[in-house]
Design a protein around this nucleic acid. Structure first.
Lengths: 195, 195
DNA sequence: GACAAGGTAAACTAATCTGTTTACCATCGC
DNA sequence: GCGATGGTAAACAGATTAGTTTACCTTGTC
């Protein structure tokens, strides 16, 4: 693997800093200092700070979803196991010492204007996560895969926020997993009721 | 009711602006302009912007919890009904046109330092909400009221975040309510299993 | 009517912010 | 060797930030 381009390096450093300190609080100068890159170079690759934020969000989107799905599929085989593995992988994510909550949730807290591009990217990320869960629910042959996925998605988001706020990370993930088990069982019971 | 003191007025204006634009992005000058108060007066009542933020969070904490619990207890009588009413009241909250997610979740996104007072206030708020839910679960005589409360709390937080991000507010609240019903039924079924 | 309390308006400091510009330097392909 | 590419370092512009200070005004109370 060749050493990353300056553009990519800037994005990676920016992701770390945005997560830790937030978007407005992280100045361009801090990013440049940590990345050991000149200001000139940053503005060659990105028109503005907002564009760097967008690039960081998009890059993290790909990185995160790829890692997450790979991890889920590696550790579990059946749809049910995979749905539960989601919360196991989430737990490992929470336990990282540079976990500062969800990058996209934090971003929307600072950029709530409905027409902002940043907001749009966050919305799309969450939709894709939900779609992934929905796919697993569909494999389950749950009667209402979209409905079950929405419920499991709420548990996922709730676990992220609770891990971030309460700092009881493994408890939040474990509780979500327990609740998910109950909701899945419930959905499958309805299926067998009908047949 | 006497007209509010300048201190209180400043806090109320600050709450609105912090919610809409975030904490770092909301400048002192904007608050002063909207509140029609001089800078001198603000710094008589608050030592710094951070102290204004803290006062805003504490004030909102009281306001929100009072409103929320009052509303729940007004619209439902039995513990089960009240647990479900939580999501009904949440839905009404989401539907307000000045809903920008949870003030405390947004705050922690910008102030993640573990020793920060702001962070501490957010953590306490969430713990109090959870305690309220746990009280209702205890009245249910659920076998594990703390566990059930944690699960229902995850659904609550998840609904807030999802309503904020997806903008499908009533859907998020409705899904949380449906999932909560299943989790409560499940907890009560375990109780009757044992007896 | 005098005085104190609490307010406004505005100038000011000093730091920090994003973004631009200038001048220079290293490295690689030809 | 030569020039293009892509980089650094640093000065600079202009706006904006939090916070302080000075001078003045308004209002209720004795």
């Amino acid at each position: 693997m060749p050493r990353p381009t300056r553009r990519q390096h800037l994005i990676e450093v920016a992701i770390d800093l945005f997560n830790q300190y937030g978007y407005h609080a992280t100045g361009i100068d801090l990013i440049l200092e940590k990345a050991k890159v000149s200001k000139r170079t940053l503005y060659v690759h990105f028109r503005s700070k907002d564009e760097l934020i967008l690039a960081a969000l998009r890059h993290y989107d790909g990185l995160f979803r790829n890692h997450f799905m790979t991890q889920v599929e590696k550790t579990a085989k059946t749809p049910v196991e995979r749905l539960l593995a989601v919360y196991q992988v989430a737990q490992e994510w929470f336990m990282q010492n540079n976990f500062y909550g969800c990058m996209f949730i934090n971003a929307i807290g600072e950029y709530s204007a409905t027409d902002s591009a940043i907001r749009q990217v966050c919305k799309e990320f969450k939709a894709l996560i939900r779609d992934y869960i929905e796919g697993l629910c569909a494999e389950l042959a749950a009667p209402d895969p979209a409905g079950l996925a929405e419920e499991l998605g709420l548990l996922f988001e709730g676990a992220i926020v609770t891990a971030q706020v309460s700092q009881q990370k493994s408890r939040a993930a474990q509780t979500a997993k327990t609740a998910a088990t109950a909701l899945i069982d419930n959905a499958l019971a309805e299926r067998s009721d009908r047949t």
